[in-house]
């Protein structure tokens, strides 16, 4: 009888320990992770460190992926790793919990920066960018979207021109909310007339449409229907548009402008900087406006969720 008890207790202990081992091994070895792709767009001064935040979703809060000490090195790279740059991981922070296909995922904000080693203006552009995280015995690669990173010598630095209002006009286009134009008030603070000649966005996939720039007489709301401002607006019609214009702002006066934005491909970019080229007399100047967040969606859109790639990881 005593032997039976010992046997039952033994089997019970074996079962409990097996379950614990399975749970622990599952926590550490199997993982589903992903990120919502977007267009990353940064512009900063040569001597300034830019904070690059990438949100990664994991289905396991105990995963190795979210342990800072487990990450040996990290890079932003193209698919073939021909063009890549080392990142500095500054911190990983828990952000929030979301549900994808009835599964719970935990979002973590990975904050990176590039080491400041540039001495001249430069850019680092990758059309299909991957985040590579190297661990001691393995590495993962995650498609994050497109990546646009610019270093410039001057930002918002001009004694002739300034911007006193900025907001994005956001419409739902092709199932996603997108910035379809900017409303900016450009002031000529000099005592001479100046001429705006060119407008550029610090993102390779976005362009201003210089031909459809409008001078506004009244305020427009953030979600103003762009078809009321630009007839036949097509957000993917970038190649037929020009960012060249010829707009005179008189001395000590300002213009409240609506500037349409067109896209080279189907992306969403909620934050970017831009440049205004102008002629002041015979002299050409460029005024650069820092990254600005135009809008944020509190929840992910349906199309984003449908386009999501889930990555399955099994540690050997």
């Amino acid at each position: 009888m005593k032997k039976i008890y010992v046997l039952i207790i033994g089997i019970f202990l074996l079962l409990v320990s097996s379950i614990i081992i399975i749970i622990i091994s599952k926590n550490d070895n199997s993982l589903v992770y992903t990120t919502f792709r977007k267009s990353y767009s940064y512009v900063s001064k040569i001597d300034e460190e830019e904070d690059i935040v990438i949100i990664i979703d994991v289905n396991n809060k105990d995963s190795f992926l979210i342990r800072e000490e487990a990450i040996n090195s990290c890079y932003i790279s193209d698919k073939q790793e021909n063009n890549k740059r080392k990142l500095k991981l500054n911190k990983i922070e828990y952000y929030r919990q979301i549900e994808i296909d009835q599964e719970i995922y935990y979002e973590y904000k990975f904050s990176f920066s590039f080491p400041i080693d540039a001495e001249i203006e430069e850019d680092f552009i990758i059309d299909e960018a991957f985040l590579i995280l190297n661990f001691s015995d393995d590495s993962i690669s995650l498609y994050i979207g497109d990546f646009n990173y610019y270093k410039v010598s001057k930002i918002q630095d001009s004694s002739n021109i300034r911007i006193s209002k900025i907001k994005g006009i956001v419409n739902v286009v092709d199932e996603r909310k997108r910035v379809v134009g900017l409303n900016v008030k450009v002031e000529n603070i000099s005592s001479k007339d100046l001429k705006i000649t060119e407008l550029n966005i610090f993102n390779e996939n976005l362009n201003f449409d210089g031909e459809e720039v409008k001078i506004l007489e009244t305020e427009i709301v953030h979600n103003k229907d762009i078809s009321e401002l630009v007839s036949d607006y097509n957000y993917l019609d970038s190649f037929s548009k020009t960012n060249i214009l010829n707009l005179i702002i008189n001395a000590n006066s300002s213009l409240d402008l609506f500037i349409p934005i067109v896209y080279i491909k189907d992306i969403v970019c909620n934050e970017f900087g831009f440049a205004i080229d102008f002629l002041f007399g015979e002299e050409k100047e460029t005024y650069i406006y820092d990254d600005f967040i135009f809008f944020e969606n509190i929840f992910y859109e349906e199309k984003q969720i449908n386009d999501l790639n889930l990555y399955y990881y099994e540690r050997n």
Binding site: D51, V53, I55, Y95, R96, K109, S111, I155, Q156, R162, S164, I189, H222, N223, E271, D290, D291, F292, I293, E296, I298
Partner: peptide, 26 residues
């Protein structure tokens, strides 16, 4: 929830002017 991205906004406020950074939405 904290904002998704940290950003620095740099600007010059002209004399006797007030600058306001505000949020609206749907």
């Amino acid at each position: 929830y904290s904002v998704t991205e940290k950003t620095n906004i740099s600007f010059v406020i002209q004399p006797n002017c007030k600058i306001t950074y505000r949020v609206t939405g749907d």
